[in-house]
């Protein structure tokens, strides 16, 4: 067996047993990204570990009744939302913008097209408010730290999770979770350099296919080493995020991103 094959099998075995450190997770993540077929092999290791776990399991205690009720309630919310999204997908797709991420779109849409989108936008905002009230109301938010809030977003039916990469070296710097229905996301970094807030700041941008220019998604500073999590909020509704980016800007932020100062990008892969 070749060395690389052996190394991959070791990594996949360790992954199934929960033994990978952050560097190894990044290594296998990169391999799976470059070779999606590896995911099947990775799953075969996980299924093996799962099958082993079943041989020693005694189901002596049933699921508590109150937890069963809670799951049924959550499933109602989940499937209602999932069905709405399926319906949304069935609707005719909005005209796509051209490829380049910072390219501007052409002339404004006709009034009726605008009206249609305004109605759809209002519906989405109403849906967003509903989800916000049920999952992320200020009362809920107070009780949850950023990591827990991130987990909640991750559980949303439309949640996406992508990696932050250095634009040139392609090194993985962290990950991003985003939910369009919640209009909220979280960036988690474990390798973003610290900055001096009085001299510069990091700024989030969302490249949305439906917007003419990148959308400002907030400022943040990294003042400690290690894992850090930041919320991503935007005042403009994000419709179809194609890419997220981070630039280094002057304190207080800017309106137009400095393209020569992009320090991380997270690309959203579209299906099909």
């Amino acid at each position: 067996m070749k060395e690389k094959e052996k190394r991959i099998l070791e990594l996949l075995s360790d992954k199934a047993l929960g033994e990978l450190n952050e560097a190894e997770l990044a290594e296998i993540g990169k391999l799976e990204e470059d070779h999606p077929e590896l995911k099947k092999i990775a799953e075969s290791f996980e299924l093996t570990a799962a099958a082993i776990s079943l041989t020693n399991l005694e189901v002596s205690e049933p699921l508590p009744l109150h937890l069963r009720e809670r799951l049924l309630k959550v499933s109602d919310e989940y499937f209602t939302e999932a069905r709405k999204q399926v319906e949304e997908k069935k609707k005719p797709e909005k005209k796509k913008s051209k490829g380049f991420i910072f390219e501007r779109e052409k002339a404004p849409s006709p009034f009726f097209a605008w009206l249609g989108w305004a109605v759809a936008g209002a519906a989405c905002i109403a849906l967003g408010i509903n989800i916000w009230l049920t999952h992320f109301s200020p009362e809920t938010k107070k009780e949850l730290n950023l990591a827990q809030q991130r987990e909640k977003i991750l559980q949303m039916p439309d949640a996406i999770k992508v990696e932050w990469k250095h634009p040139e070296t392609k090194e993985t710097l962290g990950d991003l979770v985003w939910s369009n229905s919640a209009q909220r996301g979280f960036a988690r970094f474990y390798k973003l350099p610290t900055n001096e807030p009085e001299k510069e700041t990091y700024q989030f941008w969302i490249i949305d296919e439906s917007q003419k220019s990148p959308t400002d998604a907030g400022l943040f500073n990294v003042t400690t080493q290690g894992e850090v999590i930041f919320p991503i909020d935007t005042r403009i509704k994000v419709d179809k995020p194609k890419m997220f980016a981070i630039t280094v800007e002057k304190p207080g932020g800017v309106v137009i991103p400095s393209l020569d100062k992009i320090v991380a990008v997270a690309e959203v892969k579209t299906e099909g």
Partner: peptide
């Protein structure tokens, strides 16, 4: 751990896709 897991995986017949590894070269 690795050898044991791989052995069980083989016995379960979960290693059918291992040929795909050949495509993952430097």
């Amino acid at each position: 751990a690795r050898r044991g897991l791989m052995k069980v995986r083989e016995i379960l017949g979960f290693d059918k896709n291992d040929d795909l590894l050949k495509g993952v070269e430097e």
